[in-house]
Amino acid sequence: MTSTGSVVESVEAGNATVSLGNVRRTYYLGEPVHALDGVSLDLPDGSFTAVMGPSGSGKSTLMNMVGCLDTPDEGTVHVEGRNVTALSGSERAQLRGTELGFIFQQFNLMPRLTAAENVTLPLVFNDAVDVDRRERAETLLSRVGLGDRLDHAPPELSGGQRQRVAIARALVNEPSLVLADEPTGNLDTGTGAEIMDIFAELHAAGRTILMVTHERHIAEHAERIVHLVDGQIQEIEQLDSGAHTGGSQ
């Protein structure tokens, strides 16, 4: 989990949680739109990667590709050593349920379920996991500072609290990879900083993280920043691995 600072492409697929090989995704609306135009990227185990770029540059498309929600028109996607393009829809769903954790800009909690039930929602679709859900939810919500909000419904929580519930949900299946698309996009600066502290803890605990943001100071919590422009990687910027501790106070 140490940042080597070397060229990312050289990391072997075996050590990478995620490996994209020359991925293309094109939308045809009259003219073809190349949302991703030949992207190759590895996410090494335990790495923390931020993605930045102008609106429409393909950040969310990249996210969906890594998150096994989308499949490429061309190229290869490997997640946890599995060839995603070869998987069926329900196999990809199972992969998401067991290996991935999603955090969204709009939190995306189920409005009729309590915080605790939202946290354990992924386990509902995963019959194999047999744990005390209540206990699991309590542990995770306490870890994000919401130990006293287990039975609150999402409408009764503030934006920052909702995002903490969403983070707890993303961690409930002990995922190897956490994906976050603009996790602080709907939060004020202070609350955003608190959320980034939690990300720092996750990173310290060895989780692989991929985070989309358009805010430089948020991106600086990561080890490196992938700059996307028009569906292509323009630059991979290596950050001083200590930078995030200094930048988050």
Partner: peptide, 16 residues
């Protein structure tokens, strides 16, 4: 629709 999207993202299959 959005709830369905969330459920699918966190591992719900079609049959679920």
């Amino acid at each position: 629709t959005r709830d369905i999207g969330v459920m699918k993202a966190v591992g719900a299959r079609k049959r679920d």
